[in-house]
Design a protein around this nucleic acid. Sequence first.
DNA 1: GAGATTTTTCAATATGTCTCAAATATCAAA
DNA 2: TTTGATATTTGAGACATATTGAAAAATCTC
Lengths: 261, 261
Amino acid sequence: MLPALRRARIIELLQRDGAAGLKEMSQALGVSVSTLRRDVDYLCEQNYLERTYGGALLTNRLSGRELEREIASEVESVAKGVIGQRAADLIQPGQTVILDSGTSTAAAARIARERGVAFTAITNDFTIAAILSESPAITVLVTGGVVRAGTSTLLGIDTLHYIRRLRADLAFVGTHALSEGEMSDTSIELAEVKRAIIAAADRPVLLADSSKIFSRTFCSFGRITDMHHLITDSRLPADRLVVLERNGLRVDVVPVGADGA
Amino acid sequence: MLPALRRARIIELLQRDGAAGLKEMSQALGVSVSTLRRDVDYLCEQNYLERTYGGALLTNRLSGRELEREIASEVESVAKGVIGQRAADLIQPGQTVILDSGTSTAAAARIARERGVAFTAITNDFTIAAILSESPAITVLVTGGVVRAGTSTLLGIDTLHYIRRLRADLAFVGTHALSEGEMSDTSIELAEVKRAIIAAADRPVLLADSSKIFSRTFCSFGRITDMHHLITDSRLPADRLVVLERNGLRVDVVPVGADGA
DNA sequence: GAGATTTTTCAATATGTCTCAAATATCAAA
DNA sequence: TTTGATATTTGAGACATATTGAAAAATCTC
């Protein structure tokens, strides 16, 4: 059984029961207590769970759809984790930061919360709001809007109005695709919100794991040169990197997997 | 049984009965008095409860410091479930419904989602938004606002503006306390939002499990006669019920526990 | 002062931590 | 593709630490 799958099952188990003992879980999954303990420790570091003596509890019970997403992101979380980490490093105390919806930005939120930096966050994603609101140091503002079906993302005219009123120091924007210097996503409404976020921030930063780069979807929300810089991972082929930098973009490559971390 | 769960149970017991003896609790949970005593001492240090000779009482925390997550997830009471169910029954297809933050309203959301009724929901709580957004039949609007520290509730001027623009068919409002016809809660900002929700709905409905009734906090958000009716559970003493009805309020009592469900 | 409750102490048990060897996967060179 | 060398992951054991239940001693309530 794949480690990532096993960890996903652990979250599933806890989702059902709220809490469970280590022995109990190791039997349910058919692995040794040692292995299960390591998994639980890992998930605990990633802030999915809390440890208690003899077992673990789910930090915030997610609903079905969110769970699937968490599991999906768990499978390829490494790149997103390190990208998020680099992004979180950018936040200075007292700053105002807009966080777009997305798994990379959620990872950044998780790490920013850990750091204990005091700042003001604005987000249109209530999963991210939930993550950040656990830290007393962080003031969390949520844009209004319509929930995009099956996600935790807020969209629509209310969201746009809210963001357009703002001016922020920093913004973390995720993208579905990036090709030929054009950032794009899957829906017009999503694209409009991202465009507004970019316009509202002094330093808009694009978070994109290398799998995203050079794929393509139909809804553009701006050119890459609108961004202050790009954070991506080291699986990005070198020749692609050159293309991006030739456009005058600052690219921040974080090491991942075999080639560094 | 996990120590953390056991402690959660203790809180649950005390929430139901207000106070309990150590021996009594140790028998109810099937652990020795020594262990139970240690748990109670621990919870006492954490300010969840107060010791008395031979037993313990729940602390009256007016400051609104929320329960630890580990415990909060365990105290989902039966009463809230049935109250939520009755509330969900009120929703007709195509209606617009405002859902205030709170566990009773969250229970209503869960059941409304199950029912598969198509309606439009507006909420200032992103836990509720998450619950409702899983159903494709429900359009979910979230108010903007500042996240109340440690909760999933949105507050502040943005929340108020958003709600004041609205007109809804129905609203479910939770309350922290209800005494002498006056509904009250723990913070001014919370009270303002509730007031706005009540004003925005044709039929504002109060959800209050009987433990809430006749306790009292300092921030009033309106008289009970502002509401269309009240849903509560059958643990409410009969004489209290009479008092409420004499004020012209329609009271809907759902059976719970020994006396019905 | 009598009875119950709390405090203190201790041994048994369960859990956590650390280390190590075997199994498995990964990768580079033949 | 195969092979061998090198990491990584896994399960198990030894040891440290934490929790539990019981009993004796001290304290409290009425």
